[in-house]
């Protein structure tokens, strides 16, 4: 049973980490807590779902469709909301409140088009194999989610370190003003980040929807709630921290169910988070002075 719970924790942690990657990226570069990230995540799931159902596309093509939709959503998000607010030199909480409005718009539009009821991917489209080893079971899909979280983290970190655009992004995260003085296209990079973060959210939406079998207009809301915890636990804007934070929350939840009782699960997880923040005011894995965008 312990081994199974360990596997459960890894798989749940992977889910949280995958969601958190895009969320933390926006915070790291734009300095915005994007409360519409859950809605973008939902948009990804719906795009892929309808690509599969209506256009009869294979799953891979559907993921591509989700990337296109959510990427476009990210572009619009920056163009219509973040950029005008930057131009007006808005106080730092203003964009966050605007993203609440956007989340309402997205989820109510999707509800208007597709209804409020839960939907799921057709069984034919799902990878359904389960791996079983001495009573311990994990599905292929869970494994893929965990692997993808690690791969994406690796790619992101490599890009930030090794590529020109990555270095520019890190510079931007440290100081937009300095970056602009150095001739970096600040506005373009902000937009690029918003697109990248949103499409990461979209991919997460598809995979997690495949796993939960529950696609509904407000599916992003509970994820957002957990995602905030994960990202802050890992140190805001920290890519590796998002992954570690995700696994930390996954383990905290699973093992409180295993050893304390499922009614106390969220109290234990969030109580732990509260205590950690008091002991380490910049997150479990965060550094006080330096932001790793």
């Amino acid at each position: 049973m312990l081994a199974q719970q360990f596997i459960n924790a890894i798989s749940l942690g992977g889910v949280y980490a995958l969601f958190a990657l895009g969320f933390t990226l926006i915070f790291g570069v734009l300095g915005i807590v994007n409360l519409a990230h859950g809605a973008v995540f939902m948009l990804g799931a719906y795009s892929a779902l309808h690509a599969v159902i209506l256009l009869r596309l294979p799953l891979m093509a559907a993921i591509l469709a989700a990337i296109v939709t959510t990427g476009a959503a990210g572009w619009l998000l920056d163009k219509l909301i973040f950029a005008p607010l930057r131009a007006r030199d808005a106080p730092h909480l203003a964009p966050m409140i605007a993203t609440i409005g956007l989340a309402i718009c997205l989820s109510s539009s999707v509800e208007g088009f597709f209804g409020a009821q839960n939907l799921r991917f057709p069984v034919e489209a799902l990878p359904t194999e389960t791996l079983s080893l001495g009573g311990i079971r994990i599905t292929w899909l869970e494994l893929q989610i965990v692997l993808l979280a690690f791969v994406l983290m690796g790619i992101l970190m490599w890009c930030l370190k090794q590529t020109r655009i990555g270095r520019a992004l890190r510079g931007l995260a440290e100081s937009p003003k300095a970056a602009a003085l150095l001739g970096i296209d600040v506005e373009g990079l902000f937009r690029f980040t918003s697109v990248l973060a949103s499409l990461l959210g979209g991919v997460a939406g598809v995979l997690i929807a495949l796993y939960t079998n529950a696609v509904f207009p407000l599916m992003g809301q509970p994820m957002l709630h957990k995602g905030i915890a994960v990202v802050i636990l890992g140190g805001m804007g920290d890519i590796r921290g998002a992954l570690l934070g995700g696994f930390f929350l996954g383990f905290a939840e699973v093992f409180s169910v295993a050893y304390i009782g499922s009614t106390m699960r969220d109290a234990v997880a969030f109580g732990l988070l509260f205590a950690i923040l008091l002991l380490r005011p910049d997150g479990l894995f965060g550094k006080a002075t330096q932001r790793r965008a």
């Binding site: 607010l85 964009p95 409140i97």
Partner: peptide, 14 residues
């Protein structure tokens, strides 16, 4: 209603 509510919030903030 919810859609317009959201749009109004965004417009006010911007």
């Amino acid at each position: 209603r919810p859609l317009i509510n959201g749009v109004v919030l965004i417009v006010i903030i911007i």
